[in-house]
Each structure stands twice: as structure tokens, then as C-alpha cells.
């Protein structure tokens, strides 16, 4: 680590003001940022912790029936409290280990947009709304490739609103070492159609598998996927699996997610 200042504002306004300084950076649960600092791969002058901003923490229901999660809410809280959206709660409850879940936050996860992270799949499959200190961004516009998002410099995610599907499930095939998703698929069935979001697989980060969405919207069963093929073009190929393997898993995990959806 290099030396840095650390502040813990209690309001969004104070946090945003502090982030206006050049080289200031938001700190969520620190589960990604702290290891990065330890390896001296980042050099912020000030860390602005979002953890003490009470308006950014917690889970509630909107009048429209969406599950609203504060941007600084740890995964463990979502796992325990997002009971109205069991698919989301289960996803949050299988991120990392208890220590990670007690610190890592939804805002940090979505801001980071790791191509193997779980939350991006939840946000995209749910058609969530990502609310920042300045605007509201639809999930479909938010994810812009691995580690890339629509966020501007200094912009913070204050809340994420998840429409609640009729049925949903996140099926995660873990990478053996990190236990992030080697391939993870979130399937969400809404009254007006099915959304399928795939994480872990593509070099472009999380994406919607539209052919599967169409097939499943007609027939919400694993069998509906039978005739679909997934191309390995643009799939991540690494130590843990080739592009072909990931492409294969996309279909298998989607089928399992459909079967398990509740």
C-alpha cells in the first residue's frame, strides 16, 4: 500500500463532495479495492468510505414492488433481507465466504463489474435500475464490457432497484480457485417475458442471452433450449476452462436455472 487518507462521511452529499478531489476514490466493502491497494496497483490519495452513510444501507420495498438495495449494503444483508426476491437473496448468499459477504457491497460489485461477478447477472436479468448520486441508469445501459460501466468519475451508486420476477434462479458453476462464477446464469421470468443474463463467460462481461430469452418466453422449460447453440466466439479462455467449455456451460447452467427457478 501507499499512504492514503481515509474519511467516513455520513451523507451522500459529503461523500460526493469528498470524491470531487482528484485521486479520491470510493471505498465500499474493500473486498476488491483493498487487495488492489496492497499490491500497489492503485494509488488514491483519499479513500471515501461509503459504509457510514445510513441512507445507502439496507433493503426495502418500493411502492412499485421493487426490492431496493442501498448501494453500500453488504451481500449478507441482502441474503437475509431480500426475502421478497428469493433468487436475488440466494445469489447474494453464495458470493464468496461469510467474511466477503459481510463486507462486500452491491455498489462495489456493480461498480467494479468483474466479468465473473454474480451481481451483474442479477442486475441485468432483473432489468434493475442503478441509481447514482446524479441519475438513474437502466441495467441494459449500465454494463459496458468487463470492468467497464456507465459510471462517471466520482459518481457513486446509491441504490439499486430490482423488479421482482415471478420466478427466478441463479445457477453458478464455480471457478475452482476463486469460486467466482466460471459461468453463472440468472434466469428471471416476468409476466411480459424471460430475461437471461450470463456472467463469467464472455470477454465482454455480463450479457443477455437473447435467443434463450425468446425460447423461454414461449416455453419456460429447460427443454426449450434444446435446439439452441452457444458459440465460443468471444468466450473467455483461461486456465480454468476453454471458450468451448464455457459456451457449453452457458447452456447447461441456463437449463439448470430454469429447472430450479421458483
Amino acid at each position: 500500500m501507499y499512504d492514503f487518507e481515509m474519511i467516513r462521511p455520513t451523507t451522500i452529499a459529503d461523500a460526493v463532495a469528498a470524491l470531487g478531489d482528484e485521486d479520491a476514490q470510493a471505498l465500499g466493502g474493500g473486498q476488491t479495492l483493498i487487495p488492489t491497494l496492497k499490491q500497489r496497483l492503485a494509488m488514491p490519495s483519499t479513500l471515501v468510505s461509503l459504509g457510514a452513510i445510513s441512507e445507502m444501507r439496507g433493503v426495502c420495498m418500493s411502492d412499485a414492488g421493487e426490492v431496493c438495495v442501498g448501494g453500500a449494503t453488504p451481500h449478507a444483508v441482502v441474503a437475509a433481507e431480500a426475502t421478497a426476491y428469493p433468487g436475488l437473496a440466494a445469489l447474494a448468499g453464495h458470493i464468496g465466504d461469510p467474511a466477503v459477504r459481510n463486507r462486500g457491497t452491491v455498489g462495489g460489485s456493480l461498480a467494479n463489474n468483474d466479468p465473473s461477478a454474480c451481481y451483474p447477472a442479477a442486475a441485468l436479468a432483473s432489468g434493475a435500475l442503478i441509481i447514482t448520486n446524479t441519475r438513474e441508469i437502466a441495467a441494459d445501459d449500465y454494463f459496458q464490457g468487463m470492468f467497464t460501466t456507465a459510471l462517471e468519475e466520482g459518481e457513486i451508486i446509491t441504490e439499486v432497484r430490482f423488479p421482482v420476477p415471478e420466478m427466478s434462479h441463479y445457477e453458478k458453476f464455480v471457478q475452482p480457485a476463486s469460486r467466482f462464477a466460471l459461468v453463472g446464469v440468472m434466469v428471471a421470468k416476468f409476466a411480459d417475458g424471460v430475461r437471461v443474463a450470463v456472467t463469467g463467460a464472455s470477454e465482454e462481461g455480463v450479457y443477455r442471452w437473447t435467443e434463450a430469452e425468446a425460447a423461454l418466453s414461449d416455453d419456460f422449460s429447460a427443454g426449450a433450449l434444446a435446439d439452441l447453440t452457444v458459440s465460443s466466439d468471444g468466450m473467455i479462455s483461461d486456465l480454468h476452462g476453454s471458450g468451448d467449455y464455457r459456451a457449453h456451460l452457458v447452456k447447461v447452467m441456463t437449463g439448470r436455472a430454469v429447472t430450479a427457478a421458483a
Partner: peptide
């Protein structure tokens, strides 16, 4: 014998 190797 990782999943990907066994699958391959």
C-alpha cells in the same frame, strides 16, 4: 482433474 479437463 478439473471440471474443464474431465469435460474435454
Amino acid at each position: 482433474l478439473t471440471p474443464s479437463r474431465v469435460w474435454s
